[in-house]
Structures are given as C-alpha cells and as structure tokens.
Amino acid sequence: MLRRWSSGRLASLCKPQASSHCPDSSGLPADGLLRLLSFNIQVGISTQRYHHYLTRSWQHLLPHTGRASNLQRIGALLTDYDLVALQEVDGGSLRSGYVNQVEHLAELGGFPYWYQQLNRNLGRLAQHSNGVLTRLHPTQLEDHPLPGPPGRGAILMRFGEGSDALAVVVMHLALGARVRARQLAYIRELLSGYRHQVLMGDMNTHAVDLLQHSPLRDLGLLAPQVEATFPSWRPQRCLDHILISPGLSLERVEVLSQPISDHLPVAVDIRLPGHQAGGTLESSKTLVTGPHS
C-alpha cells in the first residue's frame, strides 16, 4: 500500500524571502530556472580512505565531535539551491546527538520547507532517512517505501498543476541489480501521467544502465554525462544522478569537489518549458540518453 502525504506534512521553518527567483502562482519559479542538488551525506561522516569504513564504523552508532562541523559545511553548500535531495541522513538518534539532520540542514541552508522520510527505524540507535529541502511549496507530496528488503524509499513531489506540472522523485536505490529493477519499475509507475520529470538520488548504478537497461528506458530521460561521484576521495563510479525529461532544458551540470561524505554532490540547473534562458549554457558536456529520447 502506498503512503500518501499532502504537502501540509512539510514542516515550515520560516517564510520564503522575496527575490527575483521567487515562485509564481503555480508554485514554480517565475523565471523558470530551478537549481537542483543531490547529496548522499553518510549521516555527516567524513570518509577519505577505504580503511575509514572500518576505523570509523563506530560513527554509524555513536556521536562524534566532527559531525557538527561536517553538517555546517554541508549547510553552507546548500544555500545556492532551490531543491535538495538528501540520502543517508539521520532523523534524530544517539549517533546524531538526537539532531534531526534534515531539519538542521534546512535551517542552516535557509529552506522554508523540509521533509524527512524515515526508512529504517532503529530507535535510539539510528533513524535512517531520506530528506528533501525546498524553497518551493509542492502541491503534492507522497512518501513511498520501495519494493525489496525494508529500508529503501522514494519521495514523489508535484509542483504546479495540469499538463505543465513538474514531478520530482527523490530516491536511494538498492545495491543489488534485481531489487533495484523492481524499485525502478515501481518508480516508473509513479511517474505515469507526468510529462515533466526529474529523478534525483543515489541510484547505485551508472546512467547507461538506468536509461537503457531498466524499467525507465521508455521514458526517454536524459542524464548529464557528469564526472564520477564515488568514492569522494578518488572518484571512479558515477552512482549519483539527476535525470530529466526531454522537455526540460539543461543549463548547468557539475559534480562538486566537496569530499565531505563518501559521495560527491551532483548539481544541475534546469529551465522549465515556456521560459527563455537568460544566459548561455554553462556546460557543454554530452548527455546520456535513453533509446526513446
């Protein structure tokens, strides 16, 4: 059964400040420009070598002094974006010092709305979650546990109404290919009926696999051919993605050189249909496309 939440479940931290980039009556930015970021923050743990997975493994269970400064660095990084997808965040347990990291990062980044999706509840030990931070108020928000072993989830948001509505899915997919295929089939079903689509998150596989060999292949999605995101200290694999539908214009794509977690964050600027770009394309990188794009 699907868990469906209205946008009223989003927590309001403050009133959005007026700017030239403020939303119009549809809830979408008036200038059509949307700045997106996806980041697996590994609950604020800094990993710089493979052996740190062993020597720092205790930080997944217990608090440590460096976590607060890492979150400060992440919060400063987020201020330039309109919509942020977070993976591997803690919802407030012993290891995070009982700090809801989604709420805390929303406050640090000045986001008026945030949502925490609790996917693995280990009580006081861990509140393993996905998170969304947004400056735009979604017209609908749905919380979906994904197929497979418990612990993976997706958040579906809709911005605007009618045929021009934008559907955004935030996810953290499974490591195994078979389970991941089931999860992508579920997400494909969520997106049925939406013309404009954005998929964000740690997808644990490469873009070619997602766009050409998965249940997403008939959507015609585009993937910026970005640099590798994992491991952050010597990136070799591109596991973190922001996929967009063909009707959305890409203006910028970047993997940020911010080795705070074991993943690097991915940033994409898109222009919504019906809005003319105000400047030149900042990235000339090739796109990976699905077979029907």
Score class of each variant (00 low, 15 high):
residue 11 A to T: 12
residue 99 V to M: 13
residue 15 K to A: 15
residue 121 N to W: 09
residue 114 W to H: 15
residue 218 D to M: 10
residue 241 H to N: 10
residue 224 P to C: 11
residue 40 N to A: 08
residue 249 S to Y: 06
residue 27 G to S: 06
residue 235 P to R: 08
residue 62 L to N: 00
residue 119 N to L: 11
residue 115 Y to C: 04
residue 178 R to V: 10
residue 177 A to H: 12
residue 211 L to Q: 00
residue 20 S to I: 08
residue 103 E to Y: 02
residue 177 A to M: 09
residue 121 N to K: 08
residue 289 T to G: 09
residue 90 D to E: 12
residue 172 H to Y: 04
residue 59 Q to P: 04
residue 258 Q to P: 00
residue 157 M to E: 06
residue 290 G to E: 02
residue 11 A to Q: 14
residue 236 Q to C: 14
residue 212 Q to A: 11
residue 175 L to V: 08
residue 264 L to V: 02
residue 132 V to G: 01
residue 122 L to H: 12
residue 259 P to A: 13
residue 95 R to S: 03
residue 171 M to Q: 09
residue 137 H to C: 06
residue 274 G to N: 05
residue 154 A to F: 05
residue 228 A to D: 03
residue 81 Y to K: 12
residue 89 V to L: 08
residue 161 E to C: 04
residue 9 R to L: 14
residue 282 E to R: 15
residue 68 A to M: 11
residue 287 L to C: 09
residue 274 G to F: 07
residue 229 T to C: 04
residue 218 D to N: 13
residue 48 Q to E: 14
residue 195 R to I: 00
residue 256 L to N: 00
residue 192 S to R: 14
residue 208 V to H: 08
residue 62 L to E: 02
residue 208 V to N: 05
residue 8 G to D: 15
residue 59 Q to K: 13
residue 218 D to P: 01
residue 14 C to D: 12
residue 72 Q to D: 15
residue 238 C to Q: 15
residue 234 R to F: 10
residue 102 V to K: 09
residue 135 R to Y: 03
residue 245 S to I: 02
residue 251 E to R: 14
residue 139 T to M: 08
residue 167 A to I: 03
residue 242 I to Q: 09
residue 40 N to P: 00
residue 216 L to F: 14
residue 201 G to Q: 03
residue 29 P to R: 07
residue 198 V to N: 01
residue 267 A to D: 00
residue 211 L to N: 02
residue 288 V to W: 10
residue 123 G to R: 07
residue 94 L to C: 11
residue 289 T to I: 12
residue 125 L to S: 07
residue 114 W to V: 05
residue 15 K to Q: 15
residue 124 R to D: 07
residue 48 Q to A: 12
residue 279 G to N: 10
residue 130 N to D: 02
residue 293 S to E: 05
residue 111 F to Q: 03
residue 227 E to M: 09
